[in-house]
């Protein structure tokens, strides 16, 4: 079956302001530097990486909230890369975003009713339908109808996130990009919101691109996982497979770094040296070689390509990952 969304070699470079007013050769921060993946109908693809790896920029570029520098976006078989104006606006109905910060993403001067019905107003949906939809949405996200006339400041973080989720579902989207939707919430509330997102996925047949830095959350919610490092994908594959047998040294280190809530577990931890290099001046060759415990000469000079590393289609970009053909 044709995937819902295909991303091919997506790039987003931001110019850094030159030190001189007249400087011409602008340096670029390569926030996203050639990532490719596809998402099938109804699945959840988890996009995980550390801060600054470009995962949020990738999400925003897919929605064309920032115009991609290069690459192709194919949605339902149609190349939407060049869509502008009215055509893009129509498409936005089908693609929605859930934001990280439930405080900043709701207009404090609007009531919950206004916030949730605004997308429907923009797309000129009749008043009666709007009200009906509003009540239904409040119900599915676990809020009561008397909440309608209240303002965002009257709600807790978890409830605000529910409001944001209701708003993003107002136009019956197919693809929802969740950008760190639970990282601002306390653990007990986080579990409620994760459960809600999963229930909604089933009920409305949603497809999620789930962006997060929390590896446990990604593991729980994703069908497939893509790991990003400095603007590039280093590994992608089935969630269980990637977590059980990661093939890229970065994925291995990342997974081993997560503190496990089990004091008896043997800890074989790979401690990475140093910090994330600046994306304005990434290392040559394999971008991970400066921190990789297994780096050799080839890693410093040559960039590894994505290759298949398991029969079920797990892919990794490492010179030393064993290639598996089927």
């Amino acid at each position: 079956m044709r995937p819902l969304l295909e991303v091919k070699n997506l790039k987003k470079h931001f110019p850094i302001k030159g030190t001189s007013l007249f400087s011409r050769n602008k340096e670029m921060v390569k926030a996203v530097d050639g990532i490719s993946f596809s998402i099938k109908h109804g699945e959840t693809l988890g996009l995980v990486g550390e801060s600054g790896c470009g995962k949020s920029t990738a999400g925003r570029s897919i929605l064309k909230l920032t115009e991609p520098t290069e690459g192709q976006l194919i949605y339902k078989g149609e190349d939407i890369t060049t869509f502008r104006g009215e055509r893009m606006r129509k498409l936005r109905k089908e693609m929605q975003l859930i934001f990280q910060d439930p405080y900043a993403s709701l207009n404090p001067r609007k009531t919950i009713e206004q916030i949730i019905t605004e997308p429907m107003k923009i797309f000129e949906i009749e008043k009666a339908t709007r009200t009906e939809k509003l009540n239904r949405l409040l119900d599915v996200v676990g809020l009561s109808s008397y909440h309608k006339s209240r303002y965002p400041h009257e709600f807790s973080g978890g409830q605000r996130q529910r409001i944001g989720i209701a708003r993003s579902l107002a136009l019956n989207p197919e693809l929802v990009i969740c950008d760190e939707p639970v990282s601002a919430l306390d653990v007990s509330i986080q579990a409620q919101v994760i459960n809600l997102l999963e229930e909604l996925q089933e009920e409305f047949k949603l497809t999620y691109l789930f962006i997060a830095h929390d590896l446990s959350v990604i593991h729980h919610i994703s069908d497939r996982v893509a790991v990003m490092y400095l603007g590039e994908l280093v590994e992608i594959g089935d969630a269980v497979e990637v977590y059980e047998s990661p093939k890229h040294p970065y994925t291995q280190a990342l997974l081993s770094a997560v503190p496990k809530a089990n004091p008896h577990q043997e800890k074989e931890r790979i401690i990475l040296k140093g910090d994330l290099p600046s994306p304005a001046n990434p290392p040559k060759g394999c971008k991970f070689h400066t921190r990789c415990p297994f780096a050799e000469a080839i890693c410093r000079s040559e960039k590894p390509n994505m290759k298949q590393v398991s029969l079920s289609g797990q892919m990794a970009a490492c010179h030393f990952a064993k290639e598996v053909m089927n």
């Binding site: 007990s188 509330i189 986080q190 999963e198 593991h219 729980h220 997560v258 809530a261």
Partner: peptide
Amino acid sequence: LGLMHSIPKITEKRQKLEAITGMP
């Protein structure tokens, strides 16, 4: 116990998280 059950675990995949209901 509620806290422990509501955290997704990296070592095992479960169907549903047992969230603590309500708010502090």
